[in-house]
C-alpha cells in the first residue's frame, strides 16, 4: 500500500469532500453543467462522491442559445447516461419574455446576459447551493474566491463581505432567498484538469481536440463561422486546424491553432502554453481590467 497521495488524488478527495458537504447541508443544491471540460470533471467527481447511489441533486445548464452543436449533443448524452435531471435556464427565453435585452450590433455576445436567467432559475427552483466548475487559476479576481461563496438575495457577490474560510470547515448557513455558490474545483489548474481527464479517460466534447473548421480573425483571435456569428466586412474566412481551450457562447469563444488531436498532445500544449485560457479565447474578458469582477458581482461566476 503506497501511502503517498498524488496531487490529483488530493485534489479529487478535496472536491469529493466539498460535494458531500453540499449534499449534506443544503436542501436544494444544483450542479452547473455546460459540457465544458471543468463541468465535465466536476460531474465526474460528483458521480464518484455518491457512488453507488445516484446524484442527489439535478444539473443545470445556462443556455445562451449560441451553442456549439457538438457541446449540446455531448451535454444531452452525458445527462442521459447518468440518469440525472437536467434544468435548462435559457437566455433566449429571457430575451423573448423581455427579461433580458440583447446588446445591439453584430458583435453581441450573450455570455454577459447569463446572470438573469440563472438567477431566475435559482429563484424558480428554490436552489440554495449552486455548484460551479470555476477555478482560482483562471483569473485574478477568482484567485480570492472562497469554496463557499455567499450571495445575497439579489445573487450579488460582495468581495468585502465574504466569510473567512478556515481549515475545511465550510459555513454554508444562509437565510431564505440567499444562496451559496460552491466551487469544488477551486484549487485545480488547467493542467490538473487535463491530467485528470487523461488519467481517468474522461470523454469530452470533440471540439477540445484539433479539427478543421472555417474561421476568421477578429481582435487577434480565431472565431468560428456559425449560425450566430458571421464575419464582418474585411474579415476573411479561411479553413484552419484548431481546437478550443474553453467552450462557451459561440459568439465570444475563440479557437486556438493546434495540432493536438489526442489528450497527450493537449497536455504537452497546455504545459508549454504562455497564455492563459481566458486571455487566449474569451473576447468578453477583454472589456476592462475589472471585467470579471463586475460580472461576478452581477451574479456571473
Amino acid at each position: 500500500m503506497h501511502r503517498l497521495i498524488s496531487h490529483l488524488d488530493a485534489l479529487e478527495s478535496e472536491s469529493i469532500h466539498l460535494l458531500r458537504e453540499v449534499a449534506a447541508e443544503f436542501e436544494r443544491p444544483v450542479l452547473l453543467f455546460s459540457g465544458g471540460k471543468d463541468s465535465v470533471v466536476m460531474l465526474h467527481i460528483a458521480k464518484k462522491a455518491f457512488w453507488p447511489a445516484r446524484l442527489p441533486f439535478p444539473v443545470m445548464h445556462v443556455d445562451t442559445g449560441h451553442n456549439f452543436p457538438e457541446v449540446i449533443e455531448f451535454r444531452d448524452s452525458s445527462v442521459d447516461k447518468l440518469d440525472v435531471n437536467l434544468v435548462v435556464a435559457s437566455v433566449q427565453a429571457s430575451i423573448d419574455t423581455g427579461r433580458v435585452a440583447e446588446d445591439p450590433g453584430p458583435r453581441a455576445a450573450r455570455n454577459r446576459r447569463q446572470p438573469t436567467p440563472r438567477l431566475d432559475a435559482i429563484d424558480a427552483h428554490g436552489f440554495d447551493a449552486v455548484m460551479g466548475g470555476a477555478r482560482r487559476d483562471e483569473e485574478k479576481a477568482r484567485a480570492k474566491e472562497r469554496f463557499f461563496s455567499f450571495r445575497d438575495e439579489f445573487g450579488q457577490w460582495d468581495p468585502k463581505n465574504q466569510r473567512p474560510e478556515i481549515w475545511s470547515l465550510y459555513n454554508g448557513r444562509h437565510r431564505k432567498g440567499e444562496h451559496i455558490r460552491v466551487f469544488p474545483l477551486s484549487n485545480w489548474t488547467e493542467l490538473d484538469i487535463w491530467q485528470y481527464v487523461a488519467d481517468k479517460e474522461i470523454e469530452l466534447p470533440s471540439i477540445y481536440y484539433a479539427h478543421r473548421r472555417k474561421v476568421f480573425r477578429r481582435d487577434g483571435m480565431l472565431m468560428a463561422v456559425t449560425d450566430f456569428l458571421q464575419p464582418g466586412e474585411g474579415e476573411e474566412v479561411f479553413e484552419a486546424t484548431v481546437r478550443y481551450r474553453t467552450v462557451g457562447d459561440a459568439t465570444c469563444t475563440a479557437a486556438v491553432s493546434s495540432m493536438a488531436v489526442a489528450i497527450d498532445d493537449v497536455i504537452a500544449e497546455v504545459a508549454a502554453s504562455r497564455i492563459t485560457e481566458r486571455g487566449a479565447t474569451r473576447a468578453d474578458d477583454k472589456f476592462s481590467e475589472a471585467a470579471m469582477e463586475d460580472r461576478k458581482r452581477e451574479g456571473y461566476f
Binding site: K140, K144, N187, E293
Partner: peptide, 29 residues
C-alpha cells in the same frame, strides 16, 4: 499588482484578502 485582484485593493494600493496561487515543478504541485 499580480496579487491585487480586486478593484478596492487596486484603488487603495493594498491587498485585502488571501489570494491563492498555483505553480508546479516536475517534483511537486
Amino acid at each position: 499588482l499580480l496579487t491585487d485582484g480586486l478593484r478596492a485593493e487596486r484603488e487603495q494600493g493594498i491587498t485585502i484578502d488571501v489570494a491563492y496561487r498555483y505553480f508546479a515543478t516536475p517534483r511537486r504541485k
